[in-house]
């Protein structure tokens, strides 16, 4: 096994173990912080796929933005941290439904994975992905790029409006 394979298995185990903790932990804060390692593991997998821009964007947006927001939400909500977040009396029915859905999705994913003929791309030394991404965004995908920026602008204006003092 070479270094890259070992790294892959390490990151994959990290991601899976901690996403298990996210789902199964009784303490919502532990879930939130386990998400840090899960997202970090996914970012590491992106690095192994030579998608360095995607990996760092993952760190920036998911860890620096969304996870901080989730943790703030949990911390600022009073008396949420001590509560067992697992389902209560309805739990049995929900558990039953969840197991069925999980099995169906897992089975179809495995079936798809087995039945697809995978195209193995050759390993290439990729230089400067960010330059290519920038050029593509401002030429071929300009409309999508501008639409996304409009959406974000609207979100910012909306957030500022909601946060304003009522007169």
């Amino acid at each position: 096994m070479d270094l890259i394979t070992i790294t892959f298995y390490f990151l994959a185990t990290l991601t899976i173990v901690f996403s298990g903790i996210v789902v199964f932990s009784k303490n919502i804060m532990h879930s939130a912080f386990a998400l840090l390692f899960t997202l970090f593991g996914v970012a590491g997998l992106y690095v192994l796929l030579s998608a360095d821009f995607l990996a760092i964007t993952q760190l920036m947006l998911y860890i620096g933005g969304i996870l901080v927001l989730i943790i703030f939400g949990v911390v600022l909500t009073s008396r949420i941290t001590g509560i067992d977040v697992r389902a209560g009396s309805l739990g049995k029915i929900q558990l039953f439904a969840a197991v069925i859905i999980t099995v169906v999705i897992a089975a179809s994913l495995i079936w798809m994975f087995k039945s697809t003929k995978w195209y193995m791309a050759e390993m290439k030394e990729v230089n400067s992905t960010v330059r290519q991404i920038g050029n593509e965004l401002l030429t071929n995908y300009l409309l999508a790029f501008e639409a996304a920026s409009m959406l974000l602008l609207l979100a910012i204006v909306g957030a500022a409006l909601i946060a304003r003092k009522k007169h």
Binding site: L59, G65, V68, I71
Partner: peptide, 11 residues
């Protein structure tokens, strides 16, 4: 990258 990892210490 430096700006991205800065958020890990915040967490």
């Amino acid at each position: 990258y430096i700006f991205a990892v800065g958020s890990i210490s915040a967490l």
